[in-house]
């Protein structure tokens, strides 16, 4: 479904404040793969993702994507990033939140109703997000995964605030994305049960690969 691609990170190093978070960090992610980034609190998982998405310049190393040339142009066009703050506006309704991002992405004929139903929020379409719980707000953000067809998902702690059913559903969704030729980069403290190839990257403090 998605055209084939491979992302390569070469010899990354990042210093935040006076702490060296990681150095000599290498990884590749290709279509049909999951990269599971592990590490204790403060190990630099989110910082690594921020570096990948271009919000922080790495102190050493670089990213590349084949077969394209410009990594960041490719990235903004083909990536959906869901972090700790999901960008869901309390003052907008569920549909308005999703429609805004779908418009920015230029999705033609998005099907909001079925995506909202798929994340278990059927009937909440016209509710203000402010009236929903933390877990439900997370589910709105997850509905974007169904609406915006992008090859790479970057999910920072996606299981937080989700109930058991939600976690199983999300794992299924990740498998589906991988089977469609997409790729997923994910961090999580809860175990992920996935029936597909998962490569792991462990961030365990200074000097780790």
């Amino acid at each position: 479904m998605y055209s084939r691609f491979t992302i390569t990170a070469q010899d990354l190093a990042l210093i935040r404040g006076d702490r060296l978070l990681f150095k000599h960090c290498n990884f590749t992610v290709s279509s049909g793969q999951v990269l599971y980034i592990k590490g204790a609190n403060g190990a630099g998982k989110t910082s690594l993702l921020n570096t990948l998405t271009g919000f922080i310049e790495p102190d050493n190393g670089a990213f590349s994507v084949s077969p394209e040339n410009h990594f960041h142009t490719w990235l903004t066009r083909n990536t959906l990033y869901l972090g700790h703050h999901t960008g869901i506006k309390s003052a907008l309704t569920v549909t308005e939140n999703l429609a805004f991002y779908a418009h920015l992405r230029g999705v033609t004929k998005p099907d909001f109703t079925s995506a909202i139903a798929a994340v278990g929020l059927a009937g909440f379409d016209e509710q203000l997000a402010a009236h929903l719980s933390q877990g439900q707000k997370r589910r709105i953000a997850l509905a974007r995964l169904l609406i915006e067809p992008v090859a790479l998902w970057i999910l920072d702690e996606p299981l937080v605030a989700l109930d058991v059913d939600g976690q199983a559903w999300l794992c299924g969704l990740i498998e589906q994305q991988v089977n469609n030729g997409g790729a997923v980069i994910v961090t999580s403290h809860q175990p992920l049960t996935l029936n597909c190839t998962v490569s792991e990257l462990e961030l365990a403090g200074v000097g780790n690969v």
Binding site: T76, L80, Y81, G83, H85, T86, G87, Y101, L104, R105
Partner: peptide, 11 residues
């Protein structure tokens, strides 16, 4: 709430 970052990430 992360909206600014999401907008940038949406291109």
């Amino acid at each position: 709430d992360g909206s600014l970052r999401q907008m940038v990430m949406s291109g």
